[in-house]
């Protein structure tokens, strides 16, 4: 998966429960261990207790300004209001006007509530971070990895720039959007990765999402199949267990049957999409140990889609 670390931005998506946030953290850890300066980002309100990504690095919350989480890894909460503030202060030439605008409760309410202005704020916040420079010049981070909230949001984000350009074809917002597209929609610099599980339904949903994304300009990097359990059962052992789990209501049966489905799901995925596919194993550890273990897997992982290698 190391080839992904040459990008500027990775956008991680997938249905809830597939381990998107864990995958984000593992990718970040692996990139950091390869010497990249990484920024990881999730969306939400700063300082609220729902910072799932922050939690994996032992922090309850994240703020709208990047903070160090681990060696070579900073973390940030993408926040629409931060984006709005940055945008307004860039667009308005006079500081007093900026302050007045930000104090205006009507404008505040409008920015918070108007459809898509929220998302635009997040988009602009992303852009300011991608543009940020380090004191010694050059980008502040080599790689920005963004944990997108849910499938719907991935499509929403992928279509947002063009929708907004339709409404506002000219002016400062349009210019910012074009600039953002240059970063996040350029296949050289950016890739969206879809995380899924080696099970029937998640694979189907992943394929549906890929199909939707193909109708947008979003560059698709590939699929990460998470929690792949190694099949330790021999054919002969399966023949012994199959009747047992059918005739009795046994602990362990659900997992046993699930393991049997892994290869079939992976094959279905391979046959239905031409994008790269990477596997991450299911590990029994939790917290920092899990992230470290998975980052080992990321560093060792190679494309499993069949047409490469």
């Amino acid at each position: 998966m190391k080839e992904l670390f040459e990008k500027r931005a990775l956008l991680i998506t997938g249905k809830g429960g597939v381990g998107r946030t864990t995958a984000t953290a593992a990718l970040a850890m692996a990139a950091a261990r390869s010497g990249k300066r990484v920024l990881i980002a999730e969306m939400g309100e700063p300082e609220e207790d729902l910072a799932a990504l922050g939690r994996l690095f032992g922090r309850k919350t994240l703020s709208a300004d990047p903070v160090p989480l681990a060696r070579n890894i900073d973390g940030v909460m993408l926040w629409s209001r931060k984006g709005h503030e940055r945008f307004i202060s860039v667009v308005l030439p006079i500081a007093a006007l900026v302050r007045a605008a930000l104090r205006s409760s009507a404008l505040r309410r409008m920015l918070d509530a108007a459809p898509s202005l929220n998302e635009l704020g997040v988009f602009y916040h992303m852009l300011t971070l991608a543009r940020a420079e380090s004191p010694s010049g050059g980008p502040a981070w080599d790689l920005i990895i963004i944990d997108l909230p849910a499938t719907g949001h991935a499509l929403g984000l992928a279509t947002l720039p063009d929708r907004v350009l339709q409404i506002l074809p000219n002016g400062p917002i349009a210019r910012a959007i074009h600039e953002g597209k240059d970063v996040f929609f350029d296949p050289e610099d950016s890739a969206m990765l879809v995380v899924t599980l080696p099970e029937t339904l998640p694979v189907t949903e992943c394929l549906e999402l890929l199909e939707g994304l193909r109708e947008t300009d979003m560059p698709i990097g590939g699929v990460i199949v998470n929690k792949v359990v190694g099949d330790e059962f021999t054919e002969a052992e399966r023949d012994v267990l199959d009747p047992l789990v059918n005739d009795h209501d046994l602990f362990g049966a659900t997992r046993f049957l699930g393991i049997g489905m892994v290869e079939r799901s992976l094959r279905h995925l391979r046959e239905s999409t031409g994008t790269p596919i990477w596997r991450l194993p299911e590990l029994s550890t939790e917290g920092p140990g899990l992230i470290h273990g998975l980052s080992d897997a990321v560093l060792a992982s190679s494309n499993d889609s069949g047409d490469v290698e």
């Binding site: 021999t234 012994v240 047992l244 209501d249 046994l250």
Partner: peptide, 30 residues
Amino acid sequence: RTFPATELLGPEPTAVARSALKKLQVLAEV
């Protein structure tokens, strides 16, 4: 549900059956 005990295999289980059950028991524990 019940825990997959060795008795399920009946008297004098084969080595394959015993090893299969052992692996199933790990999953059952989880």
